[in-house]
Design a protein around this nucleic acid. Sequence first.
DNA 1: GTTAGGG
DNA 2: CCCTAAC
Length: 623
Amino acid sequence: MVSQTRLEYGFIGYQVPVFPRASRSARVRVPNRKKSGNNEKHAFEILVSVAGDFLQEGETFVPPNCKNDQQNACKNLVLKEQEDESQSSKCNLSDKETYNEKTLSGYHQIRTVNKFAHAPDRFNLKPYSSLKGFDKLANVSGRNANHSSELGISSLISGEFSEGQFEDAGAELSIIQTVKSETLQPTGSLDALEMDCKPPHYFCSGSKTSLFKDWTTLGPSRHSDTIETVSRDNNGNYVADQRIKNLSSSRRWRVSPNLNGGASFRNDGKRRKIFHDGRTSYSRQRSKRISPLKRRDFFNQCPFSGSDRGFQLDDRFNSAADKRGDAIRVASSVTSPHPHPGSRDRNVKLRIKSFKVPELLVEIPTTATVGSLKRSVMEAVTTVLGDGLHVGILLQGKKVRDDSKTLLQTGISRDGKHCNLGFMLEPRHAQIKLPRCLGEQGITSHATSFTLDPRTSSISLDPPVAGCINGAQRDHHLVPSLPNISASTTPLPNSQSVVSVPAISVEALAVVPIHHRAGRREFVQRRIRRPFSVSEVEALVQAVEKLGTGRWRDVKLHAFDNAKHRTYVDLKDKWKTLVHTARISPRQRRGEPVPQELLDRVLAVHAYWSQQQAKQQQLKPGV
DNA sequence: GTTAGGG
DNA sequence: CCCTAAC
């Protein structure tokens, strides 16, 4: 048998925190007083939207210990996963310290004031927090965690080597994102979502590669039910609609129509050039969909409280899920709500600990850069979560299809009675024609896989078998057929569609979800937000003092030549904002305070050079 | 490729 | 930070 070094990361079953700011869980307050309506659908679509937004906010994957070449880095990852696996039996999820010591030895941990500790820093999702709605986000990586709250995503990563020695060496991977805590300002709407904070979930290592064959939601936990109805007093513990700002509006995901069209990604922080079709309407479409919510405030208001329960994959659940063949799994149970007198019992609270998103397969050449791996994974994740999901509900194992039924009618709100309630993330676009793998993968394969073939430098995609997914009938989004990527150049074992990508453009490696917009679009990650430091501002001001405005390339060369991530456009923009900042009252300023002295210089310099420009303009006509 | 300005 | 017209 020929030994190959095909690295395949299967991101199988992400554990997605429902809400970034959630500390213990995300709670949805679903009024059931309406006799008819789409309460469930509405509430849980909101949940999904929010969950999706979380990942869409431009995080980037940061695989640690990948400073060597890609192959070694990946190998190390796999090896470490195995080490973890060997210790996983000792894992005591109920005890954070024990867990960390025994399971995460060798990995540093992120500790925050709320005592949140997350899984090893194998893969981190770093928010780039450049979006308006995420001004307060801060990157956290490794020990640099110094913020008051974090949220985590756990997911699986599998490393496979064809030699077999690493077969099934699945393990967890952690994705983190950090947000700043702010004070919760409760409002009084009962129709609002209620969101708590949830801790990151842990996957005990040792999870097998194919634990999640299906779209899965609501990760099962051995320590707490994924979902439970909670009926208790809401003393201002929920967030009103108007406090949830729409984050989507500030998000921009460029979309490109195909893979071969020439995406060119760069690692230096410069913008990636994307294809011909520059439409960016996706986020706005989404923002319409979720328009009632103002997510930013919502996120920010959610104080982080650090319950630290662990999370572990539940094999029983997953195997059961596999047997069922449904598109999406929910492992959750509903605890009986505690009846409350008065009007409270008209509401049922559902605590959704987390959602899982479908499998992602990222296969990437060993010669690819870490950056391209990050982007590939990121784009796969964001795309999957972007718009391709909606929520399904399982009650007692049966799918609740009638959106018009009230919870009461459905039986979700029965006081004192236990019921099993599950939520599923389902592909929104279910009517995808599959080129060829339908028969082979059957209905159990609903995952969207993104594969980059190292040998061919091709991108292959595991087409989701979305057509078989239950409950997707109600979604009548027009779903174009699969993108023209079925011309496989290298048939892969598992019938993946392959699209060829020029071998050179490793940086251009991108993943496109099949099921989402039929792969016609590609999400392009926004550059990470990197606020200017005071010293940078100082340098900028100094350079502009010397060179004047309007010579941004020179400014770049003079003062920021070694700052790869600062383009002259950035400097120009920064100057623009600096001028603005200098003009507004200090109270209105945000971010790291710029010394007034600098701002004064900004105004002076700006005035001076404006005057100079005016003079030039006056001289010109005479020339 | 740069600049300027709106988003 | 993104986008793009204009140069």
